[in-house]
Amino acid sequence: MRLISLIAAAAIFAAAPNMVFAHSKVVSSTPAAEATVARPRVVSMTFSEALIPPTAAASIVMTAMPGVKAHGEMVIRNFTIAWSNNNRTMTLELKQPLKTGTYEVRWQAAGADGHRMTGKVNFKVS
């Protein structure tokens, strides 16, 4: 019986690092990463695990505009955030379609383990 307890404890400790380091990441997005799309009004990201909505934030940043060589980043603020899929999908509903340019959606959120993660999804609008 003691041998079974030791084996069970070893199995739990061996699995623990995988559970601790299994952090949230984007598994799919619309628009897809690196895609070129026509003026979207919705941007969504589905994560590998449920997120804690009060800890989540996202921003849409235009990083380049055709025909303009040098300009700063322009943050798009006219959207609302909705959650679905048991808090695995974050949807940004835009009040206006995005203009032609290169965009980066930057996100941050905590997963079930409480660890805050960050990431980004890039795409182009033509």
Rank of each mutant, 00 (worst) to 15 (best):
R88S: 14
A82W: 00
S29P: 04
P31T: 03
P31K: 01
N122S: 13
A38P: 01
A38E: 07
T91A: 07
E34T: 15
L94I: 01
T55P: 08
V26S: 05
T91I: 12
T91S: 10
N122M: 14
V43D: 00
E93I: 15
R77W: 12
M1I: 13
A11F: 13
I76T: 02
E34A: 15
V43G: 02
V37W: 00
A35S: 14
T46R: 08
V20G: 03
T46S: 06
A82T: 15
P17G: 03
N87I: 03
G67V: 08
I76E: 01
A32C: 03
N85K: 09
A82M: 08
P40L: 09
M1R: 11
T46C: 02
G111H: 06
R106E: 03
H71K: 10
G67M: 10
L51Q: 15
A70F: 13
S28I: 09
S29F: 00
T63G: 05
V68C: 04
S44F: 01
F21W: 07
N85L: 05
S28G: 11
S24Y: 05
E93A: 14
N85P: 06
I81Q: 00
K124S: 14
P40N: 05
H23F: 13
E104L: 14
V75T: 04
I60D: 00
V20F: 05
S24K: 09
A35P: 02
H23M: 11
A35C: 04
K95W: 07
S59W: 09
E34C: 09
L94K: 01
A9N: 10
I7S: 06
G111R: 03
E104R: 14
R39T: 13
Q96N: 12
V20D: 03
S44C: 05
H71C: 12
A16D: 09
R2T: 15
K99G: 07
K95Q: 11
V20R: 02
A64P: 00
R41M: 14
T36A: 10
P66D: 03
